[in-house]
Design a protein around this nucleic acid. Sequence first.
DNA 1: AACCAGGACGTGA
DNA 2: TCACGTCATGGT
Length: 242
Amino acid sequence: MSKKIALTQKSLLKEYELQGWWPLLSLHSSSGKNPTKTGSLNGYHPGDYSYPKTENERFEIICGAILTQNTAWPSVEKALIALKEKDILSPKAITSTPKEEIGKAIRPAGYFNQKAERLKLIAEFFTGLNGRIPKRSELLKLNGVGPETADSILLYAYSQPEFVVDAYTKRIYSRLGAIKSEASYDEIKEISQKELTRNTKILQEAHALLVEHAKRHCKKKNPSCTECPLLDLCEKKGVRLS
DNA sequence: AACCAGGACGTGA
DNA sequence: TCACGTCATGGT
């Protein structure tokens, strides 16, 4: 309870260093995969919180937030790259392109039928904003945008201080003993923001670090606890030591 | 060859 | 409210 979440972030930052989310296609270098990150080819910008710099980048993040629902990031990147290749990674293009063609491009990201529909809905919504920052309640009214997607959009596309709770967060916090396993999305979000302070840069890093840690050590099936940087904080110490 | 992946929605109890 | 089935491809 008391300060476990804050201590966790401190340990994760020391272990993995700054993450620099959200990954952007425009930041992909030709030098290949970044060995310090597990999820993306690269596209991160550690230490630079000035992204997104353009409306195109902002919209790319929004599309990524939809496409990554229950889907591994490398698959999402394939979909985003395909959209860009076909020149349909803009609100106008997505609005004016048939759902079938969008579905064809985003196929590797899975659920391509409903995601194509959701991309069209949020493209319309984005255009209607005219550059204004959306409210969370507005985002939640969109079909296909639940609490996590809404918070991801606010935190990474609009730099609003909203903590993102995902399956990784719940798993890590639950194993640590920082929350009860039945805790709701909003409960986890509130205690996190309370312990971490409501600061955009901190919350961007916090979520990214949790994702990285879940992929490296706190895996669902076979967690590797032996070299876990959180071992001394963890209630389920040594679920798997081998 | 199951199992999992940076969820959300519709349905019925 | 809430548990449960559904949506789908691709990597391990």
